[in-house]
């Protein structure tokens, strides 16, 4: 149960500073494979920074990041790319290329597997098998009819689902999602989280998702991590988190001692 082969991510004493601003201070954390974790807390608590460090997109100022047992700081460029291929990231800003069609944006999920040639191929004449796979991924987010639509024409919720389809096409072992539902209405938000939860249940992918909507987090995530001012405020099973704790987490006036 506690063997390192079950470990997806581990942070050891991680601190991240941007200039004078301390985004994370002394955070230690372990995420096992197949978990679905909700990351909650007020704005500026360091959720995005934490996710980006887990994804190997930021280097901590102090402490160590281990992904699948590998120390990120010790990886070569190629190894780092391999680690990133195995971790999918859904950004708050989605980061689709709006000038490209949906299909190209989904195909971009696998750019980590090839070089310049693959990129040219993606833009000009993608492989038939890949297109079929893209279709399947879009089906899982119920968006097949938009496959050849231009991404700039999508609504916020549709763009969000394309971002998920891109991660599905990438087929990573873990998915990190940064505020994936902040820009969509409550009904869409529920749909999206159900999609994520189903992926977690059906494929056993590790999922870490940062959320503002606490009720959604409690309903879909097995474990909740509350963050405040760059520190972990609580970290326990979703059903064990009390309302009083949540109130304290978001209570701006209350002293945190």
């Amino acid at each position: 149960m506690t063997g390192t082969d079950r470990e997806a991510f581990r942070l050891e004493g991680v601190t991240k500073r941007f200039g004078d601003f301390v985004a994370l201070s002394d955070v230690s954390l372990r995420v096992d494979r197949g978990e679905m974790i909700g990351l909650i807390g007020p704005s500026g608590a360091g959720k995005t920074t934490l996710l980006r460090i887990l994804a190997g997109m930021l280097q901590p100022s102090e402490g160590r990041t281990l992904v699948g047992g590998h120390m990120v700081a010790k990886l070569s460029r190629l190894e780092l790319r391999a680690v990133r291929r195995a971790t999918g990231f859904i950004h708050q800003s989605l980061d689709l290329v709006p000038e490209l069609r949906v299909v190209s944006n989904v195909l971009a999920g696998r750019l980590g597997f090839g070089g310049l040639w693959e990129a040219l191929r993606l833009l000009t004449w993608p492989r038939r098998d890949d297109l079929v796979e893209v279709h399947r991924c879009l089906e899982r987010v119920a968006l097949t009819e938009k496959m050849y639509e231009r991404s700039s024409k999508l609504s916020g919720g549709q763009a969000q689902r394309v971002a998920i389809a891109r991660v599905l096409f990438q087929d990573p072992t873990a998915i990190l999602a940064d505020e994936p539902v902040s820009a969509v209405d409550p009904a869409r938000a529920r749909d999206l989280l159900e999609i994520l939860a189903r992926i977690n249940a059906e494929t056993g992918k590790t999922i870490v998702v940062s959320l503002h909507a606490i009720d959604l987090a409690r309903r879909h995530c097995g474990r909740l991590i509350g963050m405040r001012e760059g520190r972990i405020f609580f970290d326990r099973k979703a059903e064990e988190v009390t309302d009083a704790e949540l109130d304290r987490l978001y209570d701006l006036g209350g002293a945190v001692t």
Partner: peptide, 22 residues
């Protein structure tokens, strides 16, 4: 968008070509 592709393991050339040029 380019950074997102790089975050998914894209190399320099591929990131530039797909994430920035379009």
């Amino acid at each position: 968008a380019a950074r997102a592709i790089r975050g998914a393991g894209g190399g320099r050339a591929a990131t530039f070509l797909v994430g920035l040029l379009p």
